[in-house]
């Protein structure tokens, strides 16, 4: 479905100067600053997958998505989306792709939601019967009826996001890019968005690329994630493979010795053991030698694993 190889995007901007006449110097300078937003990125995504495309702010996620939609031309590298080169066959590629940006909306702020949906229908040449059928389905799935005729500026964030999701899939694109679709939503609204993604992915075999900072989204929706930072791919694979670290037993003891069973006391006065098999046995053997003040078991989770990778 998507094949990306050696993708690199370098942004070139005039150097900005500060101080007196700084603005003027900025305007006339021939010096440029280069910033590599995406650096030799390669991956493959298959039809029907839901991929978590993750990374900290400014990692290059949105730039990748803009290249995949054909809006930006990469500095180097090859990209194929459904057999097309996005920036060369931009118009055809556009019909295959739906996009939602949680932080900004494609809906017309001062007009009723239905007007924006009609616009999408017209721009993507959706014939009237198909438009009605698609709209009917989305009205049921996203509960649009209660605010279809309300100007978008009066919608709640959750309603607006449902409107944006509807606009992105109205023409039934086989590929959906979701950039932080749950940002700022309450628990119920988040759940609604997730259900919608599952539904869209399952029914129409729609491939989904999901960018988010809410790892609960990822755990609920994605089997595979691609992790990038500073424009480079740090990890590409199944979540299970990433989260396979051992459980950890954390104890504090009354006597606070220098070390217990080869594990030194850490700065907070705790002893952290990696547990590979017998947890009760481990606890029992420590309790036999020391008086335990407190104890907890930490399960490895995606959040701590990813935090570990980001800060590495």
């Amino acid at each position: 479905m998507i094949r990306v190889e050696g993708l690199t995007k370098v942004f070139r901007r005039p150097r900005t100067f500060s101080g007196p006449f700084g603005a003027l110097r900025t305007l006339v300078t021939r010096q440029h600053v280069e910033k590599t937003a995406v650096d030799d990125v390669s991956f493959e995504i298959h039809e029907g997958e839901v991929i978590g495309y993750l990374g900290p702010n400014g990692a290059g996620k949105s730039t990748t998505i803009k290249i995949l939609t054909g809006i930006l031309t990469p500095t180097s590298g090859t990209v194929e989306v459904n057999g097309l080169v996005p920036w060369r066959d931009r118009s055809v590629n556009a019909r295959n792709v739906g996009v939602v940006f949680g932080q900004r909306s494609q809906l017309w702020w001062d007009l009723p939601l239905i007007e924006s949906l009609r616009l999408v229908g017209a721009l993507y040449d959706v014939p009237a019967p198909r438009f009605e059928r698609s709209l009917k389905k989305l009205r049921d799935l996203l509960g649009l009826d209660e605010f279809l005729d309300t100007p978008v500026r009066q919608l709640s964030l959750g309603q607006r996001m449902r409107g944006d999701l509807a606009a992105a899939v109205l023409y039934e694109p086989p590929l959906l890019y979701l950039d932080e679709p749950t940002v700022g939503l309450d628990v119920v609204a988040k759940e609604a968005v997730r259900e919608f993604i599952v539904e869209t992915n399952g029914a129409g075999r729609t491939t989904v690329i999901l960018t988010t900072h809410d790892l609960a989204d990822v755990e609920a929706l994605c089997k595979r994630i691609i992790l990038i930072d500073h424009g480079k791919v740090l990890f590409d694979g199944a979540i299970d493979a990433l989260v396979n670290e051992p459980r950890r037993l954390v104890v504090t003891l009354e006597s606070e010795p220098e070390e217990v069973r080869g594990v030194p006391r850490d700065a907070e006065g705790r002893y952290v053991f990696e547990i590979h098999d017998d947890l009760p046995g481990m606890i029992a053997s420590i309790a036999a030698e020391h008086t335990i003040r407190d104890l907890s078991v930490e399960e490895p989770d995606l959040e701590s694993v990813i935090k570990g990778i980001y800060t590495r």
Partner: peptide
């Protein structure tokens, strides 16, 4: 200024025509 130009550019119809 607000970046919503993204959506105009992502349409199959040309920008100037829109």
């Amino acid at each position: 200024r607000t970046g919503t130009v993204f959506f105009d550019l992502a349409r199959p119809v040309g920008y100037l025509r829109q």
